[in-house]
Simulated scan of single mutants.
Amino acid sequence: MTLREYLTSKTFFGQLFLAFIITIAVGFLLLQYLDFSTNHGEEIAVPNLAKMSTEQAEEVLDDADLDYVVLDTVDFNPEFPKFSVVQQDPAPGEKVKSDRKIYLKINSGGYSTIRMPELVEKTLRNAESTLQSAGLTLGSLTYKPYIGKDMVLEVKCNGKTVKAGEKILKGSKIDLVLGDGSGGFEDEEDTQEPIDSLP
C-alpha cells in the first residue's frame, strides 16, 4: 500500500479519530486534576480584621483556613486600639484560596517621642509644613506686636514654652505666638512730635 493510499484509507482516518478522542480525554482529565489540586471554585472571602488584636485575628483566620504574617508596627493611631490591626493585605472581602497568608500591620502601644523642630523665626507657612512633617499638629495662633508678620516668636505645648530639641510626644498639638506685623517705621514716626511743635 502506498503512502497516498494509506492517507486516504479508512484505517488512517480511524486512527486519526482515535488519537483525537484520546487527546480530548487526556485534556479533560488534566483539567479535572488542576481543579482539584488548586481548590478551584473554593475561594474564601478575606474577613475584616481592623481593630482586632493579633490573638483575635489569628482565631478568625484559623476558622477561615487562612494564615497571617505581622509585617510591622506602625505609628500610633488614636482611632485604633493599642496593638490592634490597622492595615491588612489582601483587603477585606477579597477572594483568596485556603492557606493564603494575610499580611498585617499593627498599631503601636502609644505615641513615640520626637525632638521639637526649630520653628522660631520661621514663617507660619514654613512652621506648619515642618510640624506636619514631624507628626505634630498645629494648635492655636496668638499674635503680639512685632515687625515680622506671621513670624514665629514662641512655641508652646500644653501651655508651656517648648524650645527646639526638647522631647515631646508625637501627635502633640503645638501653639504658636506670631508677630502681627506692627512695630515698623510707621509706628516709630507716629510717636515722634511734629516738627512745628519743637522750640
Rank of each mutant, 00 (worst) to 15 (best):
G139N: 07
L119C: 06
K163R: 15
E118H: 12
V120A: 03
P194N: 10
S140F: 04
Y111M: 10
I174T: 03
M151L: 13
F76Y: 15
V86T: 11
F76Q: 00
E43W: 07
T54R: 06
V69N: 08
Q88P: 09
I106D: 05
D180M: 09
L136W: 07
G148Q: 10
L119M: 09
E188H: 09
S140M: 05
S172M: 10
P145S: 15
F12A: 12
Q56K: 14
K97M: 08
T161W: 01
K156E: 02
Q192V: 03
V85N: 04
K173Q: 14
L49I: 12
L141A: 00
L3N: 04
L66S: 01
V86I: 13
E128P: 04
N107C: 05
K82T: 07
L136N: 08
I44M: 07
E186I: 02
S197L: 15
E193T: 10
T73F: 10
Y146K: 07
G159I: 09
E188W: 14
K101N: 11
V177S: 07
N48I: 00
S140C: 01
T191N: 12
G109Q: 08
S108Q: 08
E43A: 11
R125D: 13
G93Y: 03
E166A: 01
A134P: 12
Q32C: 13
E186C: 08
L124S: 01
G183C: 00
Q88K: 05
L124A: 06
I24L: 15
Q56F: 03
M1G: 09
E154I: 05
K144I: 14
K173A: 13
I106L: 10
K82G: 09
G183T: 05
V46S: 11
D89K: 04
L119Y: 08
D65W: 08
N48E: 05
E121L: 05
F17Q: 12
D75S: 14
S112L: 06
N107R: 09
L7W: 10
D67I: 04
N158I: 01
P47A: 01
T2G: 12
D67S: 15
A19T: 06
F28D: 15
S98H: 01
P117C: 01
L71Y: 09
V96G: 06
V86P: 01
Q132D: 09
L30W: 03
Q132K: 15
K160L: 13
E58I: 02
V86D: 01
D35P: 04
I21Y: 10
D62P: 06
G184S: 02
K101T: 05
S140K: 14
E121I: 02
E42L: 14
I102M: 07
S197P: 02
K160F: 13
D89R: 04
D150H: 06
L30I: 14
E42M: 04
M151D: 09
E59P: 10
F12G: 02
K149V: 07
D72M: 06
L141G: 04
Q32P: 00
E59Q: 15
S37F: 13
L16M: 01
N77E: 13
D196R: 12
L31W: 11
A25D: 12
L66A: 06
